[in-house]
Computed example of a mutant assay.
Amino acid sequence: MAPVDDTDKLDDVADKTNEKLDEHPWAEWLPKAGWLARGFVYAFMGWTVLLISFQKDSADEASSKGAVVALADQPYGRIVIGALAVGLVALVVWQALALALIRDTDAKSWFKRLSGAGTMVIYAGLAFTAMRAALGMSADNGGGIERLSKGLLSSTPGRIVVFVAGAIALGVAGYRAYKGWEHKFLKHLDLDGCDPRRRKLITRLGTVGWIGRAFVVGLVAVFSMWAAVTADPDNAVGFDQGLRKVSVTSWGFVLVALAGLALIGYGLFCVVSLKYRELRD
């Protein structure tokens, strides 16, 4: 339990943040823009996963080009990515505000802060990559995690770090799967008055989407942990390469294709549930 003065400080920060949001109603549009960008990111990511599932090249020969970089190569891709970058920045700003609105000091609240901070860092990195791609600058090809993991695997302490990080990611994946299966994501939505058919659609898309995200995160986590155990940097793979390794195995392409459809489902979930999201939950 945190000291009383720490709790008071958190309450003061939350109160001031709420006051600022009340003074500037336009700030409520930040998460809306961000969630639309988030939906697009996952839908496009799902599409690239579907393409991976139907590729016949080996995991070693396959390109590791990331989804954002691949989109930049398409007609009008830079314009789309520029809009995407703006939405992602809005999502990062709102995530920072959401962290400031958390008042409690129990374990659950600190987990929410840690999870939110991690999400903010991830989307900030993706926004940076999108901005560079939109400006025609050299962008990260999606292998940043892979390069970092391989660097850490060169030493025993580094391998411990990679294994622990993989274990945490695997735990996060398990929680996401549970949240999707048990429909826990619905508590962040205000569905009062929602049409029953639309509610059913939101529930189904959310269930599929959350479980699909869990599969992808868990897959990369397992590869990272195995690389730490075997001390083999070649086993440390990022998002694209991990899926490619699975897709070339017997029936693996089916799992990857299902994961792609699930990610597209999550992207649609972000869009159709936007109207019902509780922005200050």
Rank of each mutant, 00 (worst) to 15 (best):
R199T: 01
F269P: 04
L36M: 14
R147G: 10
I160Y: 12
G166K: 06
G143M: 05
V89D: 00
D140V: 05
D15W: 12
I211C: 05
I264M: 13
V41E: 06
Y42Q: 09
Q74N: 09
V121N: 07
A173H: 02
L170T: 07
S149T: 00
D104R: 15
V161Y: 02
A96H: 04
L261E: 00
V92F: 10
W26E: 12
L97M: 09
A133D: 06
C194S: 05
L97H: 03
R277K: 03
A62Y: 07
A177K: 07
S64P: 01
Y76K: 05
Y175V: 10
A259M: 09
G180N: 07
G39W: 11
V4A: 15
F40M: 14
V162N: 06
N18W: 10
T249Y: 10
V161K: 00
H188A: 15
W29Y: 07
T249K: 15
L84Q: 14
Y123P: 06
H24A: 14
L263E: 05
R159T: 06
S224P: 01
L274Q: 07
W94L: 02
S149V: 00
D106R: 11
V208C: 07
A72G: 12
V248I: 12
I145S: 13
L219P: 01
I52L: 15
D8H: 12
A33P: 03
L261V: 11
I102L: 13
S273F: 04
A100C: 08
H188T: 09
G77Q: 02
A169R: 05
W94R: 00
G151E: 00
K200M: 03
L50A: 12
F44D: 07
A117T: 08
Y175F: 11
L219K: 01
D8F: 13
G265Q: 08
G260Y: 04
G142F: 03
R244N: 11
K56A: 15
V220G: 02
D234H: 03
G206D: 01
A67E: 05
L10K: 14
G118W: 00
A27I: 13
G46S: 08
W35F: 15
A85R: 00
V237D: 03
L101G: 11
G171T: 01
V80A: 15
P157W: 01
E28S: 14
D281G: 15
S58N: 08
K32S: 10
S64Q: 04
L30G: 01
V80H: 05
L21G: 12
R199K: 13
G77M: 08
D57N: 12
A173W: 01
K65C: 10
C270T: 03
